[in-house]
Design a protein around this nucleic acid. Structure first.
Lengths: 192, 192
DNA sequence: TTGATTGTCTAGCGATGCTAGAATCGAGTC
DNA sequence: GACTCGATTCTAGCATCGCTAGACAATCAA
């Protein structure tokens, strides 16, 4: 039995290697550069090995997205934990969100721009994604204001952050005033 | 001279056909289905003809984006013109924006998600894009509030709309509560 | 009618995601 | 320790992609 267990461990390890390598390559040279051939070469296996772990490229993107969602949730919680009071918490949250998106553009793309074959806002939504939304909800729920559904408020706030993140990175918004945009957003949307 | 003029007319006409066909195909089957071969077949010319009008596929996407930007600007102005008072105007603007994005997903993608090789927020930004932002600014500038730069406010409001549009269409936000999200956004961000 | 220019097409390049079938490896048995 | 057989991995190839070179045809001035 131990032989089989070792094989499973090795297999799991190789799968992590694939995901980590895909992510690294995407952050270095963009997702366009993540081809199955290049990825296979980097992990020092042949192309078809990838397909014994994932259905295709899109599932690999999905795996990177899930990894990213878990990391982001942790980053958001760490940022809010260090802040005192609702207003400071929401500001810290917004900054942490945009910071994560800016520092991990490829991962952010995998999560929200590319098709990773993941279900959202549905019952079969993977746990890390639900948890990412939960991390937002924890801090945003307390500033939704009277009579406003916390989930709905979180959705709107999240959408605004997402818009700022994507438009900034795509060169649609000049990055110089990023800080002032965040302040404006928090001051107006959050009700302390 | 008249012969040459006729030729130029025909050439311009064919160029419009290419852009219109690309847009139609993208709306019908998504941008992935817009291959140079399929596009060439639909316009009943060979593939290389496309390259006598555009540098490549990305320039075709850019052309669709410019067309879309002009349309969107017109749609936004039409919507705001029919509304009375700043609050009603902004609500109408937001609804028109999200409506345009929902009705023309492929065009919206060409404008904001895909790489059409267009410059944004720069000096060489094409006129239709500048005008699209101007259309937003016209109505949003009057509700920015005291001491807040109208341009900055417009950017934030636009980012929020963009986030709602993309997240909704990507299945990240359930479409059922769309209306309530718009109301919340307008009520909080706009200062009447 | 001829010659040159302009326009269009056929054919093909390298690269993509993905897969079938051959080849190899290694675990368990004698 | 040699052998068998199933699991694993690889080689080779398919269809399709964006794009382009060079052959071909249409059109114009002389």
């Amino acid at each position: 039995m131990s032989v089989q267990e070792r094989k499973e461990r090795e297999r799991a390890s190789r799968e992590r290697l694939i995901v980590a390598t895909a992510r690294e390559l995407a952050e270095q040279q963009g997702w366009d550069a993540v081809t199955t051939r290049r990825l296979a070469e980097r992990i020092e296996y042949s192309q078809p090995v990838l397909y014994s772990h994932f259905r295709g490229k899109r599932e690999i993107i999905g795996a990177v997205a899930l990894e990213g969602a878990a990391e982001m949730a942790a980053a958001l919680r760490a940022a809010t934990r260090a802040a005192n009071g609702p207003h400071a918490r929401v500001t810290a949250l917004a900054r942490a969100y945009l910071d994560f998106a800016a520092r991990n553009p490829a991962v952010y793309d995998a999560m929200f721009q590319l098709d990773g074959g993941l279900a959202f806002a549905a019952e079969d939504t993977p746990a890390p994604l639900k948890d990412g939304f939960a991390a937002l909800l924890e801090s945003l729920g307390e500033v939704a204001g009277d009579g406003v559904h916390p989930g709905l408020f979180t959705e709107v706030f999240w959408a605004a952050l997402h818009g700022l993140a994507t438009l900034t990175r795509a060169g649609r918004l000049p990055p110089t005033e990023a800080e002032r945009r965040v302040d404006l957003l928090v001051d107006r949307l959050a009700i302390i």
